[in-house]
Amino acid sequence: MSEQAVTVEAFHHHDEEGTRLGFWLFLFTELLLFGAFFIVYGVYRSAHLNDFKIAAESLNTGIGTTNTIILLASSLTMVLSLNAMKAGRVKLAKSMLLITMGLGTTFLIIKGFEWNAKFAHHLFLQTSAAIAEGKGSPLLTPGPEMLPDGQVLFYGLYFIMTGTHALHIIIGAVWMGIVYFWISKGSINPDNAGVLERCGLYWHLVDVIWIFLFPLYYLVA
């Protein structure tokens, strides 16, 4: 083999394992992002234990449990999609991916209803500009109706943490749509399923984060 041929081969070499390890490194940064949220939650919870419990009572455990089961089911269908792809059953892999997207969307719709119920009770995230214009919620703005500090903190953290998580669900679902398109085109196939695998890893991590969000907001009231 000539030296040039060796170089060309080296250039086209694709290290699937290295790519996967690199993707795990990215997932660790996600872990740190949510880890910081969890630290803030932990510190404020210990400082305002009773207020956190009172505010958490207002969250619906049934809705939280339903969403947890939906997300776990979506993790199962995601694994099955990759299994099917690696077994050469492309059609099954596509169906499983579509179901996963559907379950992710269902999660978001339920989350949307849940947030809406909170908005109806004048609980939402407000900017300092909105407060300055007098558009803030009386429950969250200094005044006679304002909730205790701990409850204001709880709802703020609830919207920020479930919101950041929901953003990840949206990114995951959009990514699945792109992967679905690439499978249809044939560029993702049983011999080249790395993108589907990494999309799955991302989706499972989003599930892992929800596994911790769920008890902290819906169970330890």
């Binding site: 499972h204 599930d207 596994i211 769920f214 330890v220």
Partner: peptide, 17 residues
């Protein structure tokens, strides 16, 4: 609650991931 969550996360990491 946190112990159960840790076991669940472990299952997802070990098997699903």
């Amino acid at each position: 609650a946190m112990s159960v969550a840790a076991v669940k996360a472990g299952l997802v990491l070990y098997f699903f991931m």
